[in-house]
Amino acid sequence: MIPAAFEYTRASSLQDALGILASDEGAKVIAGGQSLLPLMKLRLAQPARLVDIGRLAELRGVRRLDDGRLSVGALTTYAELADSPAVRYGVVADALPGIGDVQVRNRGTVGGAVAHADPASDLPAALLALDAEVVVQSAAGSRTVPVDGFFQGAFTTALARDEILAAVILPAPRADAGSAYASLEQRASGYPIAGVAAVVVLGAGGLIEWAGVGVTGVSDHPYRAREVEAALVGTTGSPEAVAAAAALVVGDREVNADIHAGREYRAAMAVVHARRAIGAALARVR
């Protein structure tokens, strides 16, 4: 459990960090270190240089934008997120307490969770369901991309090697929306075997006007289950409608399997938790 030797640089500013990334091919960003350090200790990751962005105040904190959206700085820890307006989203409030333990939530960052793209990370499901956006910075400038599409495979995202994730933008909270997260924990790691985040917006006549469903743990990357969303929209969210929509949560995706959950079980749990998350989201807005 001793990492291979590496160089260490503490970045003095975001620009400084971006400069190092641009000039040093072997450089890798470290934020809270909760995912990167375990990999390094197992020597599964052996970066030649760590660029520590952990102290960059410009990347920290949750701000309300003029249009009511929330900008969550990449270095915001889970603990800080839990103490911010972001917990108004039931889907965020539900997901946070199940992530790791106190130490992990004190060190682990939102940006790290998103950039790392663990196939079973909890928060990405919530961000997908909320239709959040990601602000990405490089020496060349900044771009904003939807979270949907950002996760591309196991531990693979749309981030280029020399880019830094600066913030996550959450939509403005609304009174006609309800959201919830439901997951089945793998008892050893605490990561979800299947986790489903659901956001529903109720329109006129109590019909579901918009739905967002994010799924994690099930496939090689967290994904947005558009089939489920489409099946929900326009319905009253009756138990039958929810069950029918939830049944579509896996589709023909390739499902992960390990000693804790084979394909069949994991797929079944995705369906159960999709139903539970959607049901709970509806209960919150009704």
Binding site: Q186, R187, A188, S189, D258, I259
Partner: peptide, 18 residues
Amino acid sequence: VYDDDGQLLSGSLLDYAL
């Protein structure tokens, strides 16, 4: 848990649930 080749699949606290 071992696989058939004798690799310990529950070889860390990520897979062995205390």
